[in-house]
Design a protein around this nucleic acid. Structure first.
Lengths: 104, 104
DNA sequence: TATTTGATTAAGTCATACCTTAATTACCTA
DNA sequence: TAGGTAATTAAGGTATGACTTAATCAAATA
């Protein structure tokens, strides 16, 4: 519980969650979207994973991250993010990315 | 939004919210319940107030604090706290305090 | 097998959160 | 109005979080 709230306390991490909300992504894709270094993103992802909010799966050279859907905190956070001016556009981007993937 | 998550990131502050969940209390009553100094509690209350999670009202010499009921974050946090082993007992205490007050 | 690419770990800096005690403010009452 | 209680503000120490660059690990490929 403590880990969950600590994880959600960072704006960057909430943005990452929003960005992952509709599409699975590699660590590199996530890092490319934000203006901080790759190691910094990696640390944030590790915090999110320790809080049980995301899971990772290594496929070959890449590590794919995705939201843990079956998670009360994630679900509630999802509602909050719908009304959050910072997170909403990232959710839209996430959906666009997912759609593009379904097409291609 | 940022302020809300920052406010909820502290275990002590979540405990204070749980303790206030069923009953209004003065700053002193709240401070008496926790093992940190009164000024420290005062600071936490100020953070919670800035986040819009509690409001205060000065009556004479005392400052009474209470939850802001009409608040999405508070509502969602309330659900989470029901399943939180740290917060639940404090909610029970809060209810007991409220009941004692109704009697007296 | 040497090189490149994706990702994480390590090391170190800087800012900030949280706590303490001391001082101050506001209100009540003898 | 002097003294006491409730509460906050101020000042300062300590720990921790977030970021950086450099180094390392792991997998693909030439």
């Amino acid at each position: 519980m403590q880990r969950v709230f600590e994880a959600l306390a960072s704006t960057t991490r909430r943005k990452i969650l929003a960005y992952l909300s509709k599409a699975e992504m590699t660590a590199g894709e996530i890092a490319a979207r934000f203006e901080i270094s790759k190691p910094a993103v990696s640390q944030h992802l590790s915090v999110l994973e320790n809080a049980g909010l995301v899971t990772s799966e290594k496929r070959g050279q890449y590590v794919h991250y995705r939201l843990v859907e079956d998670n009360l905190a994630n679900t509630l956070n999802g509602y909050l993010q719908e009304v959050c001016p910072v997170s909403r556009p990232l959710k839209v981007e996430s959906a666009a990315k997912a759609a593009r993937r379904d097409e291609g």
